[in-house]
Computed example of a mutant assay.
Amino acid sequence: MRTDDKLDQMEERPTDRARPRMTRTRLWLFGGTLAVYFAIVVGVLANTWLVTFDWQLMFFRPYKQWPAIHEFLDYFVVLGQRGPTAVAVAAWLGWRCWRQRNLHPLLVLGASLLLLNMTVGAAKLGMGRLGPHYATTVGANEMWLGGDIFPSGHTANAVVTWGVLAYLATTPLRRRTLSVIAALGALGVGMTTVYLGTHWVSDVLLGWAAGLLVLLALPWLEPAMTLAEDRLMGLLLRLWLRRPESLRGPLPAGLPAPVSRQRVAPDGEVLVRETVGAGAGGRGGTARTPDGRPHHPPRPHTTRAERSPVTPAGSRRPPHADRVPRATPLSPTSGRGRNGTG
């Protein structure tokens, strides 16, 4: 069997669910969280009661009040470290990409972590706050001193990394369940950093707000992620098609099946046959409908030879017992009878 015939029989990539959109509720949540974010920053900059509470809890030293749980929380706080959590979640989402035959889950994780590093990293370096262990003046907000703990990176990373799993959930029940689990995990990681004395309470509050802003902003990045997915899928498909036929093997999972196009002469002879990727705009990717669902062209059918239509000979009118065919001449007797003279 020829390679082009094999490509015609390949299974098409299944349609995945619609991508999340920026709804009015999500937009209100984003605006409210952004207001809380700036309120925390202003509260720390103005040395309000928030800074006083930071110092009171720092002098309380929770790690000395409950030393029995110190060892456990040393391991638990790893759930907020970017390296281990990113590897674990990427492995799970990579398996989902293979099952769903698209790159959307990994692209969501990559986009969220990139946005998190840009926003949280800029805030950390821009405000330069020192942590409790390095504080210099009692009662001061410790800002602009070259630190990098405001907001809490562990807390924000826990919100985003585990929240991505809820964002990618396929059913409302799973989304609600994973949202609760991610919220509890992020809450635990944030309070653990306060227990260990590595962050102020205000650091943790700002970390929660920063991570939630990243999750709420993901629908705005969906068009860019869809474009990137189409380009990557088209690139992988073109690389696969450039390999020699003897080394190609089966089409890798996740690539849209190529479509075989051909032009046939009236006598049934194939004039031109070419194999192209099922993509929009000739990019080799996957065409999509306006709501974000991928659209796949129908699988081509086996071409049949075209024959010129043949007009059947004779009359097409059905036979009738009382009807005299036109080809039979009327007899004189029948003519006289019809005129009433016979």
Rank of each mutant, 00 (worst) to 15 (best):
140 A>W: 11
182 A>T: 10
286 T>Q: 11
264 V>F: 13
305 A>P: 14
210 A>N: 04
34 L>T: 12
18 A>E: 12
126 G>E: 06
169 A>T: 11
178 L>V: 03
140 A>P: 01
120 V>I: 09
123 A>E: 05
161 T>I: 05
244 P>V: 03
327 A>N: 10
194 V>K: 06
127 M>D: 01
272 V>S: 07
173 L>S: 08
135 A>P: 04
37 Y>S: 07
116 L>S: 09
232 L>H: 12
227 L>V: 11
59 F>P: 01
233 M>G: 12
176 R>D: 03
208 W>E: 00
186 A>Y: 13
144 W>G: 00
162 W>E: 00
292 G>L: 01
250 P>S: 06
114 L>N: 05
187 L>E: 03
88 A>M: 14
217 A>E: 09
155 T>S: 14
284 G>E: 02
14 P>W: 07
13 R>Q: 14
331 S>E: 07
256 P>E: 09
275 T>D: 03
250 P>N: 02
236 L>D: 10
247 L>A: 15
51 V>R: 04
36 V>G: 03
197 G>K: 01
7 L>M: 14
186 A>P: 06
39 A>I: 11
331 S>M: 02
260 S>E: 13
159 V>W: 01
259 V>G: 13
133 H>D: 11
83 G>K: 13
242 R>L: 05
39 A>W: 14
205 L>E: 01
276 V>H: 05
58 M>Y: 11
262 Q>D: 11
97 C>E: 08
191 M>A: 11
171 T>R: 12
328 T>V: 15
74 D>T: 04
250 P>V: 01
25 T>P: 00
232 L>Y: 11
168 L>N: 12
278 A>T: 02
313 A>I: 05
124 K>G: 02
95 W>T: 07
170 T>D: 15
43 G>F: 14
326 R>F: 12
196 L>H: 07
113 L>E: 04
18 A>H: 10
205 L>Q: 01
11 E>N: 08
65 Q>H: 10
47 N>P: 00
329 P>Y: 04
51 V>S: 06
2 R>Q: 09
257 A>G: 10
152 S>G: 09
316 R>H: 11
291 D>V: 03
212 L>K: 07
225 M>S: 08
181 I>W: 11
167 Y>L: 15
103 L>M: 07
288 R>N: 05
284 G>T: 04
236 L>F: 15
41 V>E: 14
326 R>E: 13
72 F>L: 00
152 S>I: 05
2 R>E: 14
45 L>Y: 13
102 N>E: 04
305 A>H: 06
248 R>W: 10
27 L>V: 00
214 V>H: 13
4 D>Q: 13
229 E>G: 12
229 E>H: 12
122 A>T: 13
110 G>K: 02
